[in-house]
Amino acid sequence: MQNIPLILAAPGMTLAKAVMRPDSESRMPICGAGTALTELLIERLDQMGIASVLVEGHPVLIEGEKTPEAEIKALDHRFRQVCEDPLMIRLKEIYKDRLIRLSEEWHANEA
């Protein structure tokens, strides 16, 4: 799953999460998770003022975006003072597992 600005969205990508109408109280979905993006759909999202979308996998490399490996290093660094505490170790593992999952998605796309 990757969050990308709409300008980088391209036909063939799949929405990982529903896109909601912006500034609407009812939070009406425009299109649901699993929808495949098309040229026309992207244009319409743009007209509605949607700035970014969540897509499946990790289809684009965004400049400045940290790799999951770098994220894991940063995570270790944040936990540096509490790395002996068993409860905190459990908490860190939860975050680490998540990053490992993201890393697999990321590299699956490279292949």
Partner: peptide, 24 residues
């Protein structure tokens, strides 16, 4: 603690505080 663990935003340092046992 969860927001600091996640690294979201910046609250003045980058250290995750310890969860207090009683609260847990």
């Amino acid at each position: 603690i969860l927001i600091k663990a996640s690294g979201f935003g910046y609250s003045g340092d980058d250290l995750v505080p310890r969860i207090q046992e009683a609260a847990w």
